[in-house]
Design a protein around this nucleic acid. Structure first.
Lengths: 199, 199
DNA sequence: GCATAACTGAAACAACTGTTTCAATTATAA
DNA sequence: TTATAATTGAAACAGTTGTTTCAGTTATGC
């Protein structure tokens, strides 16, 4: 027997917990302050989620889904040039509202690398989700899976690297200029016509 | 009055602490296990370093210096093409021995972004150190500071992004292929001849 | 209405946190 | 050697941690 209203409560709690984590980070979460913030009690949180570890996993997964849904709406396929799509993505990524989200994913990333077993669910999708998203328009254009994924890898690495720089330095001018330089090179990058496999 | 032998001990401790942190990360360090690992006591650590926070700051700085000394030896200026220098750096960065160092810097990076005040000393050098290192050979070749730094920004972002990918996925084939594609574009990137500042 | 199961508040648990107190030990300068 | 200051061990302090126990409340199926 499971009370219907209580299942709602569980989802409600998960949302509140995710919001709390998005604001406060994943590293220093402890049950009592968290419970107070989401208007509950440690006892109830453990009742619903079993343990703090499971609770964190669920909250992180929810945040990941949210973020995926957000950037899934971008429809990058409509751009002519790869660089135009990437420029749009970069504009969205580097907006002030997104900075906290990147911080959070970075924190989770670091945590996951340190505890690969516990965060296997995160690590596996940390790259793959974005790769699929970025490679999909290329696949439509007829690129092979291998080539599209390699291209997407370059793009993803660039985004993340530039975000690391920008979040630490907040040097808009330098980073934006660098991104612009980088975007131009993306157009010269034609995965399907590349002939190098040596050096 | 300061005992001479004890100052040696302090440096010795700092080395041992740094090694411990390099192995165990910065997030979950606590005094008692740390003290035991470095063959000391919480009392002595606090006596020498004042507080745990100051101790961590000192240890992180020491690790940063070590890493800087390591990659300072690379002499990237000797390569003809930027891509050749970057290929050498990538080979060194992505070696198994370096993976833990990257993990550590990522963890510190995340921590520093969450506590910018406390880790200001880290954030300021997190980008700048690498930028100087990467831009220096370009400055020798006559590039302007602005252009050299923008170019170095692109390169640094790439390295870090690819490392993020590789550490999570361990997909050597895909990442190495992507790096190779990316390296080729670097040669087409001539900061001093670029004419784009519009579209 | 009643039995039964789902839920929850208060308190306790044992372990751990950074830091301090205080007394003892050690090395140095005289 | 002795006075003085630097260093250290043991224990306590006050706080936090995740989790459990137990009793009490609440809603549900009959």
């Amino acid at each position: 027997m499971v009370r219907i209203a209580d299942q709602y409560r569980r989802e409600e709690l998960l949302d509140a917990i995710s919001a709390y984590i998005a604001k406060n980070g994943v590293a220093d979460v402890s049950l009592r302050p968290l419970a107070k913030a989401v208007d509950s009690s440690p006892r109830v949180l453990l009742y619903y989620f079993g343990s703090k570890e499971k609770l964190m996993a669920k909250a992180i997964m929810r945040l990941r889904e949210r973020q995926r849904a957000t950037f899934g709406k971008m429809r990058v396929g409509r751009y002519r040039q790869p660089s135009d799509a990437c420029r749009a993505i970069w504009k969205w990524m580097s907006a002030p509202e997104s900075e906290l989200a990147f911080q959070l994913s970075l924190e989770t990333y670091a945590l996951a690398l340190r505890h690969p077993k516990r965060f296997a669910f995160f690590l596996s999708s940390a790259v793959e989700d974005w790769l699929e998203f970025l490679a999909e328009p290329l696949l439509r254009q007829g690129y092979s899976t291998r080539e599209a994924r390699a291209f997407a890898t370059v793009v993803l690495a660039g985004f993340r690297g530039f975000m690391l720089d920008y979040c630490a330095s907040h040097d808009r001018k330098r980073v934006d200029k660098a991104v612009e330089m980088w975007l131009e090179t993306l157009n010269t990058l034609h995965p399907n016509t590349e002939k190098s496999h040596g050096h």
